[in-house]
């Protein structure tokens, strides 16, 4: 799922400074799972901002709402009235949700309350790790189910760099070296011979380098 982290409170305060009536809008999907922008976080942030506003002698009004998915029009429209009443919407959804709001309500100021961080999962409670870069050309079938694009700091395609030591990445020793994991997995699967093949140059045009991406499914279009 999409993982996000709430922005520092000082940054949020600076973003909302010019506005009086602010709707803090959470999302019930990915950011809820990653404890960044669900109903609970909306409530906590609203309380903090109300206290800060009062202490600083401001009279800002904070409304709270959470929709099931901010990345779909139908769900956003469920709170259309609250959005209309606000001077600005502080979205705690990922960047997709923020932009969905901006597109649906072109006259409304929409502000991000979280930093969308990566596509990943929780490996233990409170520990989220990156697993996919959405590169558009999946090679997991060649690498034992471990992604060197998302999990190697240099997205190497032909084996570990010289900084792999004791199974850890030199860039962040708290993270496993992806190529050590790939090596171990392929060894276990009896597929180490795969590492002998030269991986061709990657087609980055399928990643961001090809410009913003779009999928059109003619079979599904109405």
């Amino acid at each position: 799922m999409i993982k996000a982290q709430q922005k520092p409170i000082a940054e949020i305060k600076a973003l909302i400074a010019p506005y009086h009536r602010i709707l803090i809008l959470g999302c019930g999907t990915c950011v809820t799972i990653s404890f960044a922008g669900g109903e609970k976080e909306v409530g906590l942030l609203a309380s903090s901002l109300r206290i800060a506003s009062a202490m600083e002698g401001q009279d800002k009004i904070f409304a709270e709402a959470t929709v099931q998915r901010q990345c779909e029009w139908e769900f956003i429209d469920a709170v259309a009235e609250q959005i209309q009443q606000a001077d600005a919407v502080l979205s705690l959804a990922c960047g997709i949700g923020v932009q969905a709001l901006a597109e649906r309500y072109p006259d409304k100021v929409v502000l991000p309350g979280v930093n969308t961080t990566f596509l990943g999962m929780a490996v233990e409670h409170g520990v989220l790790v990156e697993r996919c870069r959405a590169c558009g050309d999946c090679i997991l079938g060649l690498t034992g189910g471990v992604c060197p694009i998302a999990r190697c700091a240099k997205n190497l395609l032909n084996g570990p760099c010289g900084g792999s030591q004791n199974g850890k990445c030199e860039v962040n020793p708290e993270l496993d070296c992806a190529w050590q994991l790939i090596y171990d997995r392929l060894a276990r699967l009896g597929q180490l011979d795969r590492l002998a093949a030269l991986m061709p140059y990657k087609d980055w045009s399928k990643d961001y380098d090809g410009g913003p991406r779009k999928i059109v499914r003619e079979d599904l279009r109405l």
Binding site: N158, G159, P160, C161, G162, G163, S164, Q165, N166, G167, C177, Q180, Y183, D184, L195, A196, L198
Partner: peptide, 30 residues
Amino acid sequence: AENPFADPFDYRPYRLAKKIAAGADFIQTQ
């Protein structure tokens, strides 16, 4: 280049082989 001391140690000679297959004429180690 090749670092004989990086991990996985068992894989290093094979990685060197890969560099040679790709076209390396000479190697300078760590």
